[in-house]
Design a protein around this nucleic acid. Structure first.
Lengths: 197, 197, 197, 197
DNA sequence: AGCTAAACGAGACGGTACGTCCCGTCTTCAT
DNA sequence: ATGAAGACGGGACGTACCGTCTCGTTTAGCT
C-alpha cells in the first residue's frame, strides 16, 4: 500500500497546535511580525517540526487557510424571492461581521500575506471564492428568475462587491450603513440616469 | 526665525537616496522583507541617518508615498461629453498600467504595508484619493450634465471601482478586457433587469 | 543457558559498522565534532540501535577503544640483552608510527575524549597500559638482569615516557630523533653530573 | 594616524566579560560542552559580539589563554644551591596546585581544546612554555654551577616533567608524593644501575 | 576666524529571530 | 525482540537585522 513507509507518522496534534498558534499570532501581530519561534513556543512544538512541513512562513499561512483555520464564517442568505433584499442582507451580514476588531485585523493580516506571497494568494483566492459562493448562487438564481439581466457577469459582480468591502477593511474605514446602501444601489441600478434618456 | 538653528542641515541628497532605495527594496522584496540595513547600504548612508528622520519602517514607507516616490501615475481623462466612454478609458488605462510587473508588485507591497500599519494606511488612503481624483471629477461632471443620477454616491463609486481593481491585483488575476468591460457595464447599468419591470 | 532470551540477537554486523564509523568520524572530525546522526548514517544503522547499546557518546567511544578499534599497534621489542638499545628502539618505533597524520589526529581525538570524560578516561588508561606493557616487561627484565637499579619505579618510568611522547603529539611538535635521543638519555642516565661528585 | 577609523570602538568591558565567562564555562563544562549562547548570556553580551571577534569556539579559547585568563600560577623556586631540592619543590608545588579540582578540570578542558584545535595548541604551547620558564632557568643555573651535565637538553627535561604531570592529570590519577618522588629520582639519576658497571 | 552644534558615514553594541544541525526519545513497519 | 527509518520536543549553532550608541568628520550659523 502507498503510505506504508517505516518511521513515525506525522503528529496531527502538533499540526493542529501549530495552525492554531499561527492564526492567533496572525490576528495579534499581523503577517509582517509573525515569528516562527513564538509560534513554536505557543504550540509547544520544536521549530524543526514546523520547518519539516512548511518551507517558509508563507506556506504555513497558506496551509492555515487551506485547513480552514482562517475563515470568514460562510454567510448564508435565504431566498426570499427578492434578490436585491437578499444580496443586501448578505452584504450587511458581511459588514457586521467585519466590524469585529479581531476579524478585521485577521482579514488585514491575511490580505497582506496574500499580497506578498504567491502561494498564499492562491489559497486565499480559493477561500474567498468559497465565501462568495452563496452570493454567486443567489445572483444566479436571480438571473434564472428573470429578475437580473441575462448576461450578468455574476462572478465579476461578486468580486466587485467583495473587492469594495475588502478595500474598506484594508484602509480601516467604517463599513457603515451608508456605504453598504450606496454599494447595493450601485450594484443593482448602476449610475446612469434613465429619466432623461 | 524658526528653524535657524546652528548645525548642519538635513542632506536632501541622502533623503532622496533613502527614499529611492526604499522604493526599490519595496518593489523587489515586498514590505515584509524590507531591511533598513540594506536600504542604508544601498543608499550609501549610515543607519542613524534613517532613524534620525523615521522612527520606524512604516513611517519611512509612509514618507516614501507622501514624497511621491511610490505613485501610480495620475491618469487623466479627456471630457469627451460621453461619461461612460471617459470612465471606461480611465479604467482601461489603469488596468494597462497595472499589467507592468513592477507596478503590480509595488502595488501589492504598498497595499500589504497599508494593511499592516495604521500610519501607512493613512498616507496610502491620501495617495489613492489623489489617484481617484480624476475619476471623481469626471463623474461629478457627468452628474452635473444630467447623464448620471443626481444622488450618485460619487466617492463610493470611485472606491468600488478602485477596490475591484486592487482586488484583482492582490489576488494576481489578469486585469483583462473582459473584466474591465463587465465592470464598466456593472457600474453604469447595474444588474437589474428592466425589461420585465 | 544464560543469554538465551527470545527475539532477534544483537547484530554483530551493526556493532562493527558502528564502531568503525565512530573511529572514522573521530579521526576525521575529532571528539568535539562527533555526531551520532552522522555515525548512524555512515554505518547504515538506525540511531536507536546506537542508543540501545550506548547511553552516551562517551560510552560509545569507550567501547570503541575497548573493542580495539582505536589502538596504537602494539609495539614489540626484541630482547637483545641491551636494555637501553631495546627501549630506544621501542620509543623510536612509537615516534615513527605517531608521525602518520591519521594516527596523530586519532591520538589527539581520543586524548581529548579522555580529558573530558571519566568513562573514556578509564578505558583509555587500560588501553595505554596495554601499549606500555611491552615497555614495562622489557624494563622489568632489565631490572632482573641487574642492568637497571633494583628499586626502579618501572610503571612510573613507562608513564613518564608515554606522557612525554603524548605531550609532543598533543602540542603538535615533531617527534624527531633529537627529542627521542634526549629522552632516552634522560631516562637512563638522569641529569646529575657524576664527574664532579 | 593608523587607528583613527570611524565607528564605535571595541568594548573592552565586553571583551573581559566574554573571556571570563568562557573560562568559567570551560572549568565547569569542559571544551566539548562549551556553549556560545551560554557564554553570551553569562557575559551579558550579544552573540554577534562574540562572533565579530572570534570566528570559532577555538579562537575564543585561544584568546582566553593569550589574554591570561587561563593560567596556571607561575611557580617560583628559590635557588637554594641544591638543584635537585629546588626542582623537587617546583614539581611538588605544581602537583599540589593541580590537586585543586577546578584547576584540574580547567587543565583537562584546555588540554582537550589544544588536542582538537591547531590555533589553541599554539597558544597553549606558549602558555606552558611560560610555566616551564622557571624550571628551565633553574635547570640552566644547575648546569652552569656544574651540578648537572653540560650537555643536558634542558627544555626536553622540562617538557618531560610537564608531560608526565599532565598525563597524570588527564587520566585523572592522583599526583601523589610517591609519583613525584619517583619522577624526581628518575629525572636526576636515571635508571641505569651504576653499581655493577 | 573661531566656536558650537547638528548631521553625516561608519560601525560596534545588546538583542530577537532566523533556518539548520544534532541530541536523545518515541513510533511505525518489516524482518 | 531487533532493526531501519524517521518524526518528535528541545538546545545550540552561526547569520541577518533591529534600534541604539559611540566614533571621527563635515557643514552650518553665531559670535
Amino acid at each position: 500500500m502507498a503510505g506504508d513507509r517505516p518511521g513515525r507518522k506525522r503528529s496531527e496534534v502538533s499540526r493542529a497546535a501549530i495552525l492554531e498558534a499561527t492564526r492567533d499570532e496572525l490576528t495579534a501581530e499581523g503577517y509582517d511580525r509573525l515569528s516562527i519561534d513564538r509560534i513554536a513556543t505557543a504550540a509547544g512544538v520544536g521549530k524543526q517540526t514546523i520547518y519539516r512541513w512548511y518551507p517558509s512562513k508563507s506556506e504555513l499561512v497558506a496551509d492555515c487557510i487551506l485547513a480552514g483555520y482562517i475563515v470568514r464564517p460562510v454567510i448564508m442568505t435565504p431566498d426570499t424571492g427578492d434578490v436585491r433584499r437578499d444580496i443586501a442582507t448578505w452584504i450587511r451580514s458581511f459588514a457586521k461581521e467585519s466590524r469585529t476588531p479581531s476579524a478585521a485585523s485577521l482579514t488585514r493580516a491575511i490580505t497582506a500575506a496574500a499580497a506578498e506571497d504567491n502561494a498564499v494568494a492562491a489559497h486565499y483566492q480559493d477561500q474567498v471564492t468559497i465565501t462568495q459562493e452563496t452570493l454567486v448562487t443567489r445572483l444566479r438564481a436571480g438571473v434564472d428568475a428573470g429578475q437580473l439581466q441575462k448576461d450578468t457577469g455574476v462572478s465579476t459582480v461578486a468580486e466587485t462587491v467583495v473587492g469594495a468591502l475588502l478595500y474598506r477593511i484594508l484602509t480601516r474605514q467604517e463599513l457603515d450603513d451608508v456605504f453598504v446602501d450606496e454599494l447595493v444601489e450601485l450594484i443593482f441600478s448602476g449610475i446612469v440616469n434613465r429619466e432623461e434618456r
